[in-house]
């Protein structure tokens, strides 16, 4: 299996006033293509900093980070923006859809920043991504006319549309009720089954059961890194949930 992500002794220091805060103190791991990794940790464990680093939004103070074979550490702002555009799909807790904008236009957005796509190609890819997340019948719905689950699906479609090397989900179920959370997990498992690489950052330990690997972070260091041999099916868990009354 090809390595998508390789972290080599990543450190990240922040200066807060006169003190130096060590957010990451030497993190190393490798993620191969097709893995569904959950990264867990309490707040202050450094998982947000790790996510920013993985997402090429931030560069480490020291250590090497290779994304799909490219070293990120010494890249400038603009080349990192380009790398994000091509290799990474973000899914955020609060969806971050453009207001009053249709599903298609929201999903098209990453391709708008990539000049190699024509308008027709953009539209086609956006429609395919929306079909893949089960929103084929809501292409023209505007973001303010959708439920939370639907908005998160649009956000996932937006993350898929550029065929990224890795999907980075940041508490992607954090704003959703239990049932909708499971629906989104089902979708992530489906994408995993299709061979996508997914990194899911969360503080909810339950989600680890549905992923193929679990990395636990504490005080800026990896505490445990375990492969999950007993992956639960989110679809089954969803079926066991009590049905909504309406």
């Amino acid at each position: 299996m090809k390595d998508i992500i390789r972290l080599d002794n990543i450190r990240r220091d922040f200066k807060v006033g006169d003190e130096i805060v060590h957010a990451l103190r030497g993190v190393s791991f490798t993620i191969s293509e097709g893995e569904f990794v959950t990264i867990m940790g309490t707040s202050g464990s450094g998982k947000s900093t790790l996510l920013n680093t993985l997402g090429c939004l931030d560069t480490p103070t020291s250590g090497e980070y290779y994304l799909d074979g490219t070293s990120v550490r010494k890249m400038g702002k603009n080349s990192r923006a380009r790398l994000r555009n091509l290799k990474i799909g973000f899914v955020f807790q609060s969806y971050n859809l453009l207001p009053k904008t249709t599903a298609i236009e929201n999903v098209e957005l990453p391709l708008m920043y990539n000049p190699s796509f024509s308008a027709a190609a953009r539209k086609e890819k956006a429609i395919n991504a929306l079909i893949a997340v089960g929103l084929g019948d809501r292409l023209m719905h505007k973001s303010n006319q959708m439920s939370g689950g639907q908005m998160q699906r649009v956000a996932i479609a937006r993350a898929l549309v550029n065929d990224p090397a890795v999907i980075l989900a940041d508490e992607a179920t954090g704003n959703l009720d239990t049932r909708t959370s499971f629906e989104i997990l089902v979708l992530f498992q489906k994408l995993h089954a299709e061979g996508r690489t997914i990194i899911f950052v969360t503080h909810n330990p339950e989600i680890a059961r549905y992923s193929s690997r679990n990395i636990l972070l504490r005080d800026g260091q990896v505490i445990t890194d375990t492969v999950n041999h007993d992956i639960h099916s989110a679809a089954e868990a969803l079926a066991k949930l009590p049905k909504n009354d309406d």
Partner: peptide, 16 residues
């Protein structure tokens, strides 16, 4: 601000 952050995280450069 959030929209700008989103645009940047999906690949918009400063100049965009």
């Amino acid at each position: 601000t959030r929209e700008i952050g989103l645009r940047m995280s999906i690949g918009a450069k400063g100049i965009d």
